[in-house]
Nucleic acid binder design. Structure first.
Lengths: 201, 201, 201, 201
DNA sequence: TATGAATGAGTGTTCATTCAT
DNA sequence: GATGAATGAACACTCATTCAT
């Protein structure tokens, strides 16, 4: 393995440990030494890759965010079919992403809960929501024209959906039995239009 | 004012300051001295009324929770009319409570985000949700029989509604324009049954 | 002893320990824990009395400086006789002060050696020299008129004298045998006018 | 350029950077990486040429000292004329050397201020002064016999002169207008014998 | 020889808790 | 009960030195 490859690997190990540790303990109650131990690197190495504890926290949010972004920004590219099918498809996919990225979501909740403490990160997350609302807009509009979605502001619908996503993670921390999440997908869909399928445990 | 009244007042001042300060800065980044300053009492007095920082945090969650509880537990006592009317009424009332109790909600989000860190408080909040689910159950059931609510598990519906409530507070931190909240009430209602009123900005 | 008296005493102990320790080890190589140990107080107490290491350093310079100032500013008030007698008297007194304040002088040398590092303290010490030059001015002028002092700028004479004082402390760190210092007094006097007394070891 | 020449050049670059950086920031507040950057070499290279930070500091003092030494040791070889002319000549030359070697002087002041911290370097500087005192001795003695110098211990005179030199550097850090330094030369001369030329700004 | 990543000991500062007044 | 000084454990961050490449 080349020197550079080794470094990339080490950086990734630290970042992964940071995501895990920050999400479990919160920013303030996480120690750099705990992250180092979790990552299996020396204490000093953390500072070789990330200038400060704060910078590492930012990276721990922003880098996973980049991976999640496409699921929320490339709506028309990724999901197909009628508006109802597209949204159903999208919800399916996004709830899976949320269910699988427990750590990242915990981190983002920390940021959302304290916008003044993390202004840059908060702005980034807000922008993320805004882009999603913008991209889903035409889909909702089309669905409304076709009569399968509720009338009303597509932006507000998108926001209510995002709120539900955030709230679900808060409510069902570790319990991701398929049943709950698949039923929640139907509940999410109901924010867009009437859906009469049964919700069952 | 009697001696005892004075003390009660002081205790209340400290608790109020704790709610505000903990919710703004998080548990770890809050200092007792900041709470004392906010409450306008001496540093030492905080420890006269609350044994430890932890105990004060617990009180800052549990005491406001008691005030909010009735809105979520006395369903049939507080809200009247047909199931749809009751739920609409309830949502109206509960969203107002949530919109007005920003500080308490921030605190509860801290707890929800770290169940292992705050096991007792987490259990308390979970119980709160469980009681709500239990109390709303018959209302939903009745609505389902009448055909105005979706079929499916009332518990899951209740949980999705609680998730939405939590998520809304996370998403719309300070923006409580009537418009947003009133529209969100409709969105919340749609978790229970099809509602075709327009959602508008 | 009253509470306030105790605190004053503790503060003085810390300040004294700081003067000693900083002067022996320099600012950077002095640890707060060493000062605390020297002062016989707990580590944390240092920060009760002085906000930062830097502030303590400043106090360790400025407070002794206040005590030394009068010897350099109250020229006409403290020293009497003909100009030559006044200056001889003054030198006698000031060299004693310098010989006795080894620690303070070490500290001031640290500041003088790094004006950019200690801009506030440096300005204070410069002001101290300027005041001295201003106050000795009329004495030198009078001595020049009487013909016992050299002609030329009194300010420069004063500065050369201050330089000699500073340099002496640098050169004779611990060796303050009377002989050296008393002979140096004559050398100092010779910066002002011709003095033919013998200098002897 | 040969391999060896290249290395000599690199070593010289590091040493020069060390003199500058140590003198500006002091030993403790200087980092090896700052020296490397100043020298334009890699961090690791510093350790290739100097085993430790301490060793580099010693070299940064001792190597410039060697260049300055001749001006203070080869008295009779370098300066000519009557004793008064010789000393005037010497002072002229030595003050220039001091005025021009700001960095080195800052370093030596650090050493003089902390003899216990730098025992070897301190001994070296003391020896330097002793040699000077020894070499100027016969000149002073001759001047005393001719009646143009003050009576008294030539060693003490030499020491007072060295003290003035050191003090001047401390007092006039950056201000080397010719006027000040040329006037200070006269003040220096007055430590040896009465000189009635005017000192003027 | 040149480089710069790896390491971990060391230190200023914070702050919950204790306790004397 | 009220106050705020005393204490020291805990932690982010720095940096000389080592060493693999």
């Amino acid at each position: 393995m080349s020197r550079e490859e080794k470094m990339m690997k080490k950086r990734a190990a630290i970042l992964g440990a940071a995501v895990k540790t920050y999400s479990e303990n919160g920013f303030a109650e996480t120690t750099i030494s705990a992250i180092a131990k979790e990552a299996g690197v020396s204490f000093g190495s953390v500072f070789t890759y990330f200038a400060t504890k704060e910078v590492l926290f930012e990276a721990a949010i922003l880098e996973p965010l980049e991976e999640i972004k496409p699921y929320f920004s490339e709506i028309e590219e990724r999901y197909s079919g009628s508006p109802m099918e597209m949204v159903r498809n999208m919800i399916d996919c996004q709830l899976d992403v949320f269910a699988k990225n427990k750590d990242f979501l915990r981190l983002s909740q920390q940021v959302l809960a304290r916008p003044d403490r993390y202004p840059v990160l908060f702005a980034e997350l807000s922008a993320f929501v805004d882009v999603f609302a913008e991209r889903i807009y035409p889909v909702i509009e089309k669905g409304q024209k076709e009569g399968c979605f509720y009338e009303g502001s597509p932006v507000l619908m998108a926001q209510s959906y995002i709120s539900l996503l955030n709230g679900l993670r808060l409510t069902f921390i570790d319990d991701h039995t398929n049943l709950i999440w698949s039923n929640m997908k139907i509940q999410a869909l109901r924010l867009f239009g009437p859906v009469t399928e049964r919700v069952e445990v």
